[in-house]
Structure formats: C-alpha cells, structure tokens
C-alpha cells in the first residue's frame, strides 16, 4: 500500500521514499487517509441505528426517524466522497476535454 501514497499514485522503481514531506505532499497523504477512512466511518455510522433498537422491538425512534438519519448519513458520505475525489484528482491536471458540438 505504501506505494500508493505518492502524489501520482505510482512509485518509479528505485526511488526511495522520503521520510518527511513538504506541506503539499503531506496534505495529500492525509487526504488519501481520509479517503480510506470514509467508508469505515460510514459503516460505523450506519450500524448506529441498531444500538437505538437494542432495547427491544418497541424501543427507540420510529422508522421515519431511522430513515431520516440513514439518508442524512448517506448525504454526508456523498458530500465527503465528492470533496475528496475533487482534491485527489486535482494533480492529474487533465486538459479539458474537447466537447462535441
């Protein structure tokens, strides 16, 4: 996995990994960490409703509240993924695609 942490996502053979990075690269590494943490955090948040109902069938809020909570987490996940993918793909700096008329 370590090789994935360089900005381009690839390590040229023979290049040694630096121990300390300049600020930009450091930021990028942490973004990649965030991208890895995001699904785990999402999974934990989505398990939470089970705890509300651990007291029995009638305990906890109704299904509507559950649904609102789940969809809220969902929106957060989407927003998080959108922000992360926006920053993670920045250095690719691809030229804008030619549009079809």
């Amino acid at each position: 996995m370590n090789a994935e942490e360089t900005p381009a996502g690839e390590t040229p053979a023979g290049e040694r990994r630096a121990l300390f990075l300049e600020r930009g690269s450091y930021r990028r590494r942490r973004l990649m960490d965030a991208a890895r943490i995001l699904p785990v955090a999402g999974a934990i948040l989505l398990i939470l409703p089970l705890l509300w109902h651990s007291g029995g069938a009638e305990s906890g809020p109704g299904p509507a509240t559950d649904a609102i909570y789940v969809f809220a987490v969902w929106v957060l996940l989407i927003a998080g993924a959108a922000i992360l993918s926006r920053y993670l793909t920045v250095p690719r700096a691809e030229p804008p695609r030619a549009r079809e008329p």
């Binding site: 990649m32 991208a35 890895r36 995001l38 699904p39 785990v40 999402g42 999974a43 989505l46 649904a67 789940v70 969902w74 996940l77 989407i78 998080g80 993924a81 992360l84 993918s85 993670l88």
Partner: peptide, 17 residues
C-alpha cells in the same frame, strides 16, 4: 431494503481503497 444500496455506497465512497 436500504442495505442493498448502502453496501455499494460504502464501496464507492471508498473507491480509493
């Protein structure tokens, strides 16, 4: 029924992984 969509959501949100 949401589980069927939450699984893929997690996989795609973690596309980097």
């Amino acid at each position: 029924y949401l589980t069927i969509y939450l699984g893929p959501t997690l996989v795609f949100a973690g596309w980097w992984l």
